[in-house]
Write a protein that binds this DNA or RNA. Structure first.
Lengths: 142, 142
DNA sequence: TTTATGTGTAATCATCACTATTACACTTCG
DNA sequence: CGAAGTGTAATAGTGATGATTACACATAAA
């Protein structure tokens, strides 16, 4: 049950935006840093815009900007903004309703999956884009 | 990338085995309960065998059995036995090594991802197949 | 006002993991 | 020996993903 690469790339994008002091950054420049195409970047930026994490300045000299302070953007917010699929997938077709196990397994396992997902999300809520930017500055200074 | 249903199905299988008191269960019977094909079940059983969670009795009258007590099988063990992919995927192609962010983003984000995965795994380690079987018995009794 | 420089998004494509299915070799009980 | 199982390879269909092309639209600057 993997995430897409969008979460890591979106974190990359936001961290880059956090380190440019409010100047708009072109999707093409971001694409160079991420090593992909500008359209892919704009697709992810579109999701981040919808989530209120970034905004775009159109026209010449335009680009992407943070819509809120980097200290207010948790990795959990990023995760929710760009990931579509459920962390845990259950049976593709509903199990047998007349079998003791089949009829109840989903009800029984679901609370466990919710607790696991909650624990993961809590951890992602502890780190912000500002934390990542700060760590990058420390590493880049060496 | 569709997320795998193997974890939920494997938990289903093991819970079913835990409720049959040591009698071997045919893959076809499990398949009926899960609502899939016997080959799919045997494919998952093959992984569970490799992980030492189940064993198979070959020949006529054979089937699948638990290889250890249900109280000793944590959902974390099941998860590790049947899931192939990393929980978090990172950049498909390595980011730009000459950009400050690109050169360091993976090193910076990785510890966060490890902590999130560890939190999820810790939660999955708290529940056993015996717990699931017990919950099923309670639900089925009503 | 025109033009260059951007973003936004639809459409298409190749790739990959997943589940389902068929087929067949192998094992073991009766 | 034969019936009843498991083990596994090969194949196909499906769906999400990421890459790419194409083009409409917005805006700053000349």
């Amino acid at each position: 049950m993997p995430t897409s690469t969008r979460f890591a790339v979106a974190s990359h994008i936001l961290t880059a935006l956090a380190m440019t002091d409010g100047r708009p950054v072109r999707s093409e420049d971001i694409a160079t840093s991420v090593n992909t195409s500008a359209v892919v970047i704009r697709g992810i930026l579109s999701r981040l815009n919808d989530a209120g994490l970034t905004r775009s300045q159109l026209g010449s000299g335009g680009g992407a900007l943070l819509a809120k302070s980097a200290v207010e953007i948790r990795l959990l917010d990023v995760y929710e903004a760009v990931e579509d699929t459920e962390l845990f997938a259950v049976h593709r077709t509903a199990p047998c309703t007349t079998c003791p196990v089949g009829a109840n397994i989903l009800d029984v396992i679901n609370p466990v999956l919710v607790r696991a997902r909650t624990a993961l999300e809590a951890e992602l809520g502890k780190t912000t884009i500002a934390n990542l930017a700060e760590s990058i500055r420390e590493l880049a200074a060496t």
